[in-house]
Design a protein around this nucleic acid. Sequence first.
DNA 1: CATGCTATTATGTATATACATAATACATGA
DNA 2: TCATGTATTATGTATATACATAATAGCATG
Lengths: 233, 233
Amino acid sequence: MNVQAAQTWQGVQEEVLRRIHAREWKPGDLIPNEAELAKEFGCARTTVNRALRSLADGGLLERRRKAGTRVAAPPVAKATLNIAVIRHEVEDRGARYGYQLALREVRAAPTHISAALGVGVQERLLHVMALHLSNDAPYALEDRWINTLHVPGALGQDFRSVSANEWLLQNVPYTKGEIAFAAKPATAENAKHLNCPENSALLAVNRLTWDHDQSVTAVQVLFAPGHQMRTRI
Amino acid sequence: MNVQAAQTWQGVQEEVLRRIHAREWKPGDLIPNEAELAKEFGCARTTVNRALRSLADGGLLERRRKAGTRVAAPPVAKATLNIAVIRHEVEDRGARYGYQLALREVRAAPTHISAALGVGVQERLLHVMALHLSNDAPYALEDRWINTLHVPGALGQDFRSVSANEWLLQNVPYTKGEIAFAAKPATAENAKHLNCPENSALLAVNRLTWDHDQSVTAVQVLFAPGHQMRTRI
DNA sequence: CATGCTATTATGTATATACATAATACATGA
DNA sequence: TCATGTATTATGTATATACATAATAGCATG
């Protein structure tokens, strides 16, 4: 018996992880049930449950009532990216943040935008473009449409000193959203703002947020060439 | 009193979420402590704890002992991307998966690779390039270096029918890793394989995995132009 | 033989209780 | 005043117990 004291759920989790990493329990394998593990580790079933549930949340285990718990196969890695306010992202890297409003207009949106936001094609929406700077160098270009039918308050903001990004987060709740990552070639306009050659490969993050069944905003953030989003798995 | 029965942790979570979305509790606000909420909801503190802990895991609440629980400010969205086996990714979209080995060689790696893998610059490593197809169209180009000092078994594989991607997941454990997303222009070679114009904007996913303190593999996956990675937040 | 009922089983959750731990506030002493 | 110790407090965790729920297997019935 190689177990003496794993009286904490972290301890149980560690030991289970070890067995998975050591291939004692291989991907696809059914592992002992909670009661057995509790007996083996000398702790309550609740504690084992906590440990296994946490691993299942992380994608390493798959659990089904009655069927039992098995090691996830194939091990799907879950990469969690923090989508923060751009100002914080810049400041966290120890750089000086800057902000420039590039455009603010109220007009009918392109069809793919009005469709995504679920509003009529001739509905006049608020369109804001802004440049985020890191140590005075272009960092990201934000291209945003705001559903003013749902967020009329946005019309009273000039977004000259506070970005739409931050204003919305502070003032408008959202309950769900979609996010998509893609690579896009820089248009002539993108290139001008980001101070890079036309057709440069840019990392694009598209977000669409909803407050219950009302769309709030559709935004595309284009990062300067070379930008990376990193995380651990 | 607008609360009668939230006897489940999901119920408590929903009500707390509702209050956050309704701005009854604003970002930065300290919310009542577990004991008070338990009394209000007519359930055990454990149940409230479960609900709040889950919300904190999701990044919506920030909790500190003694200090209490507050609504996260600014609301950092966590986007969780599933990094699956490419074959499954293709098949899940209902497409026919195809695989072509493009290159397999053993040689000294470029310095940035050997440095990332933490091996000597003149160490000969296994280099594999392969094309993943979706309905016979190029889907992704995999460019991989394997640390054969730690994974000698890879030298016995020809990777002609099973991708290195899948073989490694099935056979070599890893305990931690890094992942980075970026946009890159297609090189002439990339363009040839992916059947796209040179300098096309490609979404690049770079992964580096470790088994305890031994590097396993460094891989770059370049997706065909227009590819998106999506998730909900 | 197919269909539906039932028992069984493993996970999922709720509770009271107890104690652990971290962080703050307050008091105390040099 | 400053440092240090101490009490307080909110979250964190472990436990036994009980019951809920989903999925399966096996049985019974038409």
